[in-house]
Design a protein around this nucleic acid. Structure first.
Lengths: 162, 162
DNA sequence: CTTCAAGCTGCGAAATCCGCAAGACAAGCA
DNA sequence: TGCTTGTCTTGCGGATTTCGCAGCTTGAAG
């Protein structure tokens, strides 16, 4: 009888995570450089097992271990969220936005915008260029609305750690 | 009388970063677990110097090294961006939003919303509860507009790496 | 000129990472 | 049942990395 088919993949292709992998991710969300042995002690696994699971999570793209900063402290003085409305298929526009290096974040949404995109720029001229010349010029873009960031109040990466 | 200690901090309290620290951050944005020695070779510093600088950047809160994931793969099925309009001072509302564990991201903006907040929830009920019962009940909140996420297309943490 | 603090370097000891071989276990099949 | 297969796990050395410390250099302040 198929008790538990080993929990391989869900139908959309995203790997299924068991409780142990979740716990490993939580450990690394607290400190991305925590040693494997310490993680193993916390989640009840050997050091080598943790290492292999972490490697797999990275390979699968489920998780990435990176340094994150407040863009303001690294010299990017202007940021904005841009709401975009599109005629026709969203995918080409979303892909074009994703291809721009200044665009950090692209998400398709339900509501009065079709797409939200976060822009990180060095100054006002740069921001204006991206929004006015590049995004609004994309085929299929009907209209855009910009929200220039004034102050970042919170930025966390602690999903699952609550 | 302390004139200027050592060009340590700019007037808003954010530490000033030189080119070497920037380069270190870029290395760690590519791989948060890269060894100090390898980073040192890349930026022209000794292993110990890199280690000291990284520790300082972490202590100062300029940078954090963490695992990041797509929330969908860790069991959070509903996300939304919420635009908030406020009567009076923004700060109390922004602080209240920041205090909610479901709120990942809070930013004050110029434009037709005063505040943008990103919500990460487990399901529709949870999302509805947060938006309708908790956010709209905050004193000072005049109105909200929600954008439920349909698909995340891009998510990067590569500021400075371009 | 002297003092002082901050930052960098080099080095040895301790801890960690990494690859590999072997064991355990469930699922599939004849 | 017995066999095979694939995945996960464990245990171990050797190579690598991290860590703490002492000494050196530099620049600012007294």
């Amino acid at each position: 009888m198929p008790r538990e088919p080993r929990a391989r993949e869900s139908r959309n292709g995203t790997p299924q995570l068991d409780a142990v992998s979740l716990a490993i991710i939580e450990q690394l969300q607290e400190d991305g450089r925590r040693p494997y042995a310490a993680i193993g002690k916390a989640v009840g696994l050997s050091e080598a097992a943790v290492r292999q699971r972490v490697q797999k999570l990275l390979d699968q793209g489920v998780m990435q271990i990176v340094a994150v900063t407040d863009p303001l402290t690294v010299g990017f003085r202007r940021q904005a969220m841009v709401g975009v409305n599109v005629d026709g298929d969203l995918d080409p526009v979303a892909d074009a936005l994703s291809a721009m290096p200044e665009v950090e974040y692209v998400v398709m949404t339900a509501g009065s915008f079709d797409i939200l995109a976060e822009i990180v720029c060095e100054d006002d001229d740069h921001l204006l260029d991206v929004i006015n010349k590049r995004i609004r010029a994309l085929p299929g873009v009907r209209s855009t609305e910009s929200f220039v960031y004034l102050k970042l109040k919170k930025q966390t990466y602690m999903w699952g750690t609550r």
